[in-house]
Amino acid sequence: MMQLGLRPCAPAAFNSVILPPETSGGPYIGYLLSPHTDGVGYPAGGHYRIEVSQAGKVVAQRPFTKSCIALGGRGPDGAKPAALVVSHILDPVPTEIHVFVSLATGLPLYVVTGPDATWKVTGTAIERVKMPG
């Protein structure tokens, strides 16, 4: 997707998913996903959503992050994390990419979208977390 100026956050090609139009004549929705290549941290950045018209033209695109982010990995003793945490400034709520990351890692993902907004994404479930204080 170099012609769109999009680059994955890994030394490999994007993984892609194309969904059919939701309505007759509507756009195809495509996702370009940074691949998990190192077996350590899971890419939470470098993912994009693309809308393509029936004529094959890109009509909209958006990044889900402003930078490359890898979540997780292993602790010094090889321990797997119990949950992941990421800040997200592009939307007021978690997005489908947060659901994807939670499903792909099998871990809850806490998404901080503002000073008073933290969300817990567990698979396909999203709930707002009540913070103490």
Rank of each mutant, 00 (worst) to 15 (best):
Q3N: 09
L6H: 02
K120W: 04
G56Y: 10
G46F: 12
E51M: 08
C9I: 13
T23D: 06
P21S: 12
H98Q: 12
V17F: 10
K57M: 13
V52C: 08
D91W: 09
G106M: 04
A104C: 06
Y28M: 02
F100T: 06
L32D: 04
P81T: 12
G123M: 11
P11W: 05
V93R: 15
V93T: 14
F100I: 05
V85I: 14
V58G: 00
G25E: 04
P132G: 08
P35R: 11
R7C: 02
Q3V: 09
K80Q: 15
S102V: 02
F14Q: 13
C68N: 03
Y48C: 00
L19A: 12
G114I: 07
A12P: 06
L4H: 07
G106T: 12
G39H: 04
L84D: 00
L71K: 06
Y31W: 14
M1K: 01
V52R: 03
V40E: 05
I50Q: 00
P108T: 07
A125Q: 15
L103A: 12
K57Q: 14
Y28W: 14
L84P: 03
R62C: 01
V40M: 00
T118G: 11
W119M: 04
A13G: 14
P132F: 13
G72W: 08
V129H: 08
M131N: 06
W119G: 05
G56P: 10
Q3E: 08
F14E: 12
G26P: 03
L4E: 11
W119A: 03
P11N: 14
M2I: 05
A12F: 03
I97E: 09
Y110P: 02
R49V: 04
V99I: 14
L6T: 00
G30Q: 11
Y42W: 08
V111H: 03
T37V: 14
A79Y: 05
G72R: 14
F100S: 11
T95E: 05
A125C: 04
G5C: 02
P35N: 06
T105F: 00
A83R: 13
